[in-house]
């Protein structure tokens, strides 16, 4: 299922709504890379609260998204990884090294506010 991406000020919020196939994940990666440029976003939140499985492919793709967006000048934070999912990821030896994570959307926004300093508004 397609992941809707909302613009919230300087940030983009991608809110995963249902289970994701590999193709959906790749689509999300491409969408975000494009929109970060389109909206000149400083930060991106990917909300994975509904995901019941984050396997090696999903981990690799999320990591790739975060690193790609970093190269495009935006910080990424993954929010909402469920306790059971976190446990399975640890068992699998999967890490989101170099990728920001936060408990939920609110914490994710706070994380970005700290990292992606708001740009100075010119002429206003």
């Amino acid at each position: 299922m397609h992941v809707p991406v909302l613009k919230q000020g300087d940030y983009l919020i991608a809110s995963v709504q249902s289970v994701l196939s590999d193709a959906d994940l790749v689509q999300l990666r491409d969408d975000l890379a494009e929109r970060v440029g389109q909206f000149r976003s400083r930060g991106v939140i990917i909300d994975v609260t509904v995901l019941d499985v984050i396997d090696s492919f999903a981990t690799r793709t999320l990591r790739a998204v975060a690193h790609m967006l970093k190269l495009r000048g935006a910080e990424t934070v993954i929010v909402g990884i469920q306790p059971d999912v976190a446990f399975a990821m640890v068992q699998l030896g999967l890490t989101l090294e170099g990728v920001g994570t936060a408990l939920d959307l609110e914490e994710g926004l706070a994380y970005l506010d700290r990292l992606a300093r708001k740009p100075v508004k010119h002429g206003k």
């Binding site: 499985v53 396997d55 492919f57 059971d84 399975a88 699998l92």
Partner: peptide, 15 residues
Amino acid sequence: SDLTLIATAISEVAR
């Protein structure tokens, strides 16, 4: 947690 472990293991072997 077992449900998640089982589903994740299936995901890996299916992939």
